[in-house]
Amino acid sequence: MTEQTVAVIDYGMGNLHSVKSALEHVAPEQKVVVTSDPAVVAEADRVIFPGVGAIRDCMAEINRLGFDKLLREQVATGKPVLGICVGMQALMNHSEENGGVDCIGIFPGQVKFFGTDHKDASGCPLKVPHMGWNQVNHNDHPLWVDIPQDSRFYFVHSFYVRVDDESLVAATCEYGVKFHTALTRGNLFAVQFHPEKSHTAGLQLLKNFLSWDGRA
């Protein structure tokens, strides 16, 4: 099998060691590169777009480094692209965080705040951020192969995604409200949870991504 390169985009927001380690664990035959060089990303066979932190700071660096334009170009090539956590949120039109921030706009929709007085259906308070393990209800996309329905994934977020077009939803989760946990369109797939921190199910999703041809 010909060695393929996976580029993990580094725009200075968070330690990407755990993402790189998880990828190397599930696919030791592939070359994993953490990079802030657009040329390296453009040459890679697959792209991962992670993110942690405040969306204003993330978007400032994404725009400064030109990764907003680069991501649109990479999605247009048909190359498999995976967004993770704030990387998913940055692909939306707009986020309520930090008083309102315009994002890259590849997925049509909004990033919304759970709220300071968040409650479940019976009125019991829920902590924000949503932190820890939660069940995910998914469709039959290739990235869910060998991942049982209602598998648990690890989340850390105070804001959640609401996409405008339901046909783009690949998974949902409940935390006081039902929110869109995974989105997909063509060769682009994005998740709110951290697959690199989600043990067996998360590693399986990364393994599926590394063998995905970018088609549903």
Rank of each mutant, 00 (worst) to 15 (best):
F159L: 10
V145C: 15
A60K: 10
K207G: 08
W133H: 03
N134K: 04
I84R: 00
D10M: 05
M88C: 04
F114L: 06
E43C: 12
L143C: 11
H94G: 11
N93K: 08
R72Q: 13
K127C: 13
P28W: 08
W212F: 06
F49P: 05
L82M: 02
Q149G: 05
R72E: 13
F114K: 02
D102V: 15
G14D: 03
H94F: 10
M59S: 02
W212G: 03
Y154S: 02
Q149F: 12
M1H: 12
R215M: 14
L188M: 08
S158R: 02
K31E: 11
T77K: 06
D164E: 10
C58R: 01
A182E: 08
F114T: 03
Q149R: 11
C58S: 10
H118I: 14
G186C: 07
D150A: 13
S18K: 07
V8F: 01
K69T: 14
G66T: 15
D57P: 14
N93M: 14
R215Q: 15
V52M: 05
A42V: 14
R185A: 05
G12P: 08
R152I: 14
A216V: 15
V6K: 02
Q4I: 14
G87M: 00
T184D: 12
E24D: 09
T2H: 07
W133V: 02
I147R: 02
H25E: 14
S18H: 07
P50V: 02
I106D: 08
V34K: 04
V75K: 01
N137K: 14
T35E: 07
K127H: 14
G99D: 12
Q135M: 10
P50I: 00
Q4F: 10
E43V: 12
S198F: 06
V169Y: 08
H157Q: 09
N137P: 13
A171I: 08
E73Y: 08
V52S: 03
V26T: 11
V177G: 02
A182Y: 05
P148Y: 13
L71R: 07
T5P: 15
K197G: 02
S36N: 12
F189S: 01
K20T: 14
I84P: 00
G53L: 01
L23T: 04
S95N: 06
V136M: 03
P142T: 12
A201F: 12
Y175S: 10
G176Q: 06
L188H: 04
A90T: 04
H118M: 06
E73M: 06
L188S: 04
S122C: 15
D213Q: 12
D68A: 11
H130Y: 03
G14V: 05
M92Q: 10
F107I: 07
H17C: 13
G51H: 00
Q74A: 06
K207Y: 15
V6L: 04
A171F: 12
D150N: 13
D37N: 06
I106S: 03
A121Y: 15
L206D: 07
P50L: 00
R215N: 14
P148E: 11
C124K: 13
A201L: 10
P108G: 10
E96Q: 11
Q89I: 01
F67R: 05
C85D: 01
V136H: 01
V32R: 01
